[in-house]
Design a protein around this nucleic acid. Sequence first.
DNA 1: GTAACTGCAAAATATTTGCATCCTT
DNA 2: AAGGATGCAAATATTTTGCAGTTAC
Lengths: 145, 145
Amino acid sequence: MHAPAKSTDSKVADILRRKNLSITDSRRKILALFVASADALTHSDIERKAGEKIDRVTVYRTLQAFVEKGIIHTIPTADNAILYALCRDCQEGHHHDDHVHFVCSNCNATICLDDIVSPRIELPEGYRAESTQVVIHGVCRNCAG
Amino acid sequence: MHAPAKSTDSKVADILRRKNLSITDSRRKILALFVASADALTHSDIERKAGEKIDRVTVYRTLQAFVEKGIIHTIPTADNAILYALCRDCQEGHHHDDHVHFVCSNCNATICLDDIVSPRIELPEGYRAESTQVVIHGVCRNCAG
DNA sequence: GTAACTGCAAAATATTTGCATCCTT
DNA sequence: AAGGATGCAAATATTTTGCAGTTAC
């Protein structure tokens, strides 16, 4: 098993420090999960992956704090499970919601495609757009084989 | 105030009949809400608007049945409230999910813009898109007024 | 008449809150 | 040392399930 790379660990600490959150075990572990995995996680993913050591309530409060601080964001999904993801861009400080999310119908992973900018869409007369969120369902790189 | 048009009532009955669902009071009332209102509804919207007469459990089961039969569909939202909406096109039989949803940040209504087709989006190598859902936040026609 | 639908009660889940204790700074 | 974070217990809220009575066809 790969030991948790020191780089991940310090990256995590950096993020927390930058956001004025005190650095605790729970937060380190949970944030590390996001940094480590490319795809979005549900509350129960996190509970499961973090092992038995973290209280359910702490997970709630931690996710809430992360969202408030802009470290992670929620992703709307068709089946309305609440997904949380950290985006590369958000890490850098300038949080932007207008990116594309991809949900793999095979492995069920949800991935932030930060590089892809949401398109401008022509709206009917009278509507004014402020932000555009796109969720694409399909088959991801891994599953397409 | 407009009396509930007879046309709405027969429209509702038509839809139920076409989908092989028996025509009951609850279903008629709930489906009428969708037909009547232009925007999407949450579970609690429905409970509230339907009056005290409909049991919470019946609402759950009715919405589930409607979704299964393709009468309504769920809309993913940024705040992860579960929204249900009937789409003009879905009524006609050929259900397509690839339409644009608009959420008004002022009046909070969610509207299906059935006329607007989701754009094709260029994906990274290896990804295959099957469907594209777009949610645009902004100010709707009424509120922009 | 039969199968399906509803409403009530209750179980199973999910989320929030209060508070004493522990940990970070 | 002080303020914030955690974990436990318990309060709420949400969703699901079972079943007896009712209704649509």
